[in-house]
Amino acid sequence: MSETGYKPKPDNATGGLSSAGSQPAFPMRGSLFRKNLVTTLLLAPAALWLVVFLVLPFIAIAIFSVGERAPEGGYQAALTFAQYANLPARATAFWNTMVLAPIGALACLLVAYPVAYYLALRAPQRWRLILLAMIVIPFWTSLLMRTYAWMYILGGRGIPALLAYVGIEDLRLINTPGAVLLGIVYGYLPLMILPIYVSLERLDRRLLEASADLGATPLSTFLGVTLRLSLPGVMTGFSLVMILLLGEYLIPTLLGGGKVFFIGNALVDLFLQSRNWPFGSAIAITLVLVSVVVLIVANRISTRLSGARRVDLI
């Protein structure tokens, strides 16, 4: 085979990465530093924002979590891990949440993927922006209001009232698990669609042609190329929705009738009803840790399945 007169090429001479693959071409140290200084200055406001609104509250919550509930409620300084030891008291809530969050995110994904796929790969170019806007714009109004709208649509004077006209009496849609799932899918759909849309939009269409060219049927192209390469978007959307669902309390309360108790509900009750801030804080800290774990796992999966790409949340 090698009698073709082919001369092995010195790859480095042509800028090849074969030997430099592990040490990407960094700029010189000096310029790197200068670049960092500028970057630092540019990022300072954002960093400050982060510190004031994320880090400090987190520290405050962490301090609360090792405190005690004052007799009249609230917080009283102490150094105890009793609150953490008490976490099993909300085990059901944790369990409900850990079951709901992935199921909700999955349901959301199942609806979002075809929509994102249509938008990115099938919709006529000139309609794309309009369709995208139609998906995003409702998101600008508060979730509370949109969920409230669903309360009326599913409530006795909404769909059941219409069904009563055709003789289906006393049908109850509101305050059912289905209503909660619907609310979750509806509420978080844009958050799931957008990252998937972005990753599909970024997808090099020629890869799809290359796949077809190599004999892959549309289905195996979808599975082997489209889906695989959109996984970072899928994982981003999934972890985003999942993490938000970990703290969700509004939708189960409004569309589920408050009969299903999630960690979010436990938090609301502890802060606003029984005013047990230390216990609430311990749960909040735990929730943050769980979220971090979810992100790390999602990132691992995404990295493994699609090469070097990462979940865009990190």
Binding site: R206, E209, A212, D213, L214, G215, V225, S306
Partner: peptide
């Protein structure tokens, strides 16, 4: 006849190799 049933193969501009 769709591309995946044609007895030809293509080397694409910029190669279109699968990055994953």
């Amino acid at each position: 006849t769709p591309p995946y049933r044609r007895p030809v193969n293509m080397v694409f501009q910029q190669y279109a190799l699968f990055p994953h």
